[in-house]
Design a binder for these strands. Sequence first.
DNA 1: GAAGTAATAGACCGATCGTGCTATTTTGTC
DNA 2: GACAAAATAGCACGATCGGTCTATTACTTC
Lengths: 204, 204
Amino acid sequence: MPTIHDPAPRTERGEKSRAAILDAAARLTTVEGLEGLSFGRLAEVLGMSKSGLYAHFRSKEELQLATIEAAVELYGRVIVDPALAVPPGRDRLLALVDAFFDFVGSGDFPGGCFFVYTAVDPATRREAVRSRLADEQRAWLRLIEEFAREAIEAGELPPDAEPARLAFEIDSLMIGADANFVLLGDPSYIEEGRAACRRRLGVA
Amino acid sequence: MPTIHDPAPRTERGEKSRAAILDAAARLTTVEGLEGLSFGRLAEVLGMSKSGLYAHFRSKEELQLATIEAAVELYGRVIVDPALAVPPGRDRLLALVDAFFDFVGSGDFPGGCFFVYTAVDPATRREAVRSRLADEQRAWLRLIEEFAREAIEAGELPPDAEPARLAFEIDSLMIGADANFVLLGDPSYIEEGRAACRRRLGVA
DNA sequence: GAAGTAATAGACCGATCGTGCTATTTTGTC
DNA sequence: GACAAAATAGCACGATCGGTCTATTACTTC
């Protein structure tokens, strides 16, 4: 079982520092990968020493897991919550899709979507890390699936729409758009993905 | 300009050795990434010395580029050629899709599709490598697009099918299927992807 | 303001990285 | 069989990796 770590910084300075570290770590991860994320590079980016970082995270794995949690929290705040604020139905699904493409397309994370990269990166050899990412991917697919089910119930999607299939296809379009956006450096793929999702949901 | 390297081994032993190295390198890349690919690990896998490898590839970048070429050639042989053997039309597109999912689903490459991983992996900082991968991705999209155009001309796809859109969506379904297959370790996503592509092409 | 604790720095360790340099063995040609 | 070239091995280098240990600085609480 991946141990729960409770180094829980006590001072306000510690909290702020930890948040700043994880913010930089999440960004760095989209460029270097979770395994390529190193204490040395991270310390350099933050202008602090490696051992300073070790006071917050006692091992690389702990840093990786904490970085994932930070990214999960960020995506929850920026992508999931805005969708949950919309009443159930097709509009909620559209809100999720839009929030995703807005965030990824903003270029805030230099290497594109945190989870697309980490999902496809098998260099992540640590089992605890891999399984945490897998859990999150499953939860993501289930979220889209649930939104789709709501939309079907609301009569805004065909009754035979198959939520699981739809979730897989929407997720794939997001991943594909991000991959092309990042590799080709062409932001039009963000809009291409958004449009494809809308078509898949029967929106003009 | 990325220099063309012509170390062209002269002996038969050299040729075989080079091929064996690149085969192992391509497999290793799907697990470690192009940047994570190291002479040390590769030498270990092959049971030879690091300096033995340096006789074939005088730098890491040269090894990376040669590995990409080897993968391109393999995919051409295993995925593109079989499709080209089918007469133009929707069946040719289906042959391409099937060959892709057959190959990726075979588990021959431990980390899934070579190009999905390398495309999403921004850790590849070397410009020559990145741009070679980008060229290949563009060529891949254009290939699907061309096949789609042929199918439209043959009257096997609706005249307003928009080949570029279709290429993007098919490509995304391939990437999405591979990503879920690799991360979740669930081979059913290969068939899910195949089925989604067939639906997209209007096949029962 | 004294004391204790959290936060950070600095110096170090063994391992691995990419990459050279120098043998040594194998292969193909005359 | 001689000889050049190709293929491979061995060794050494500086850099970076994850990680430990020991100070030192900042903060909080009494």
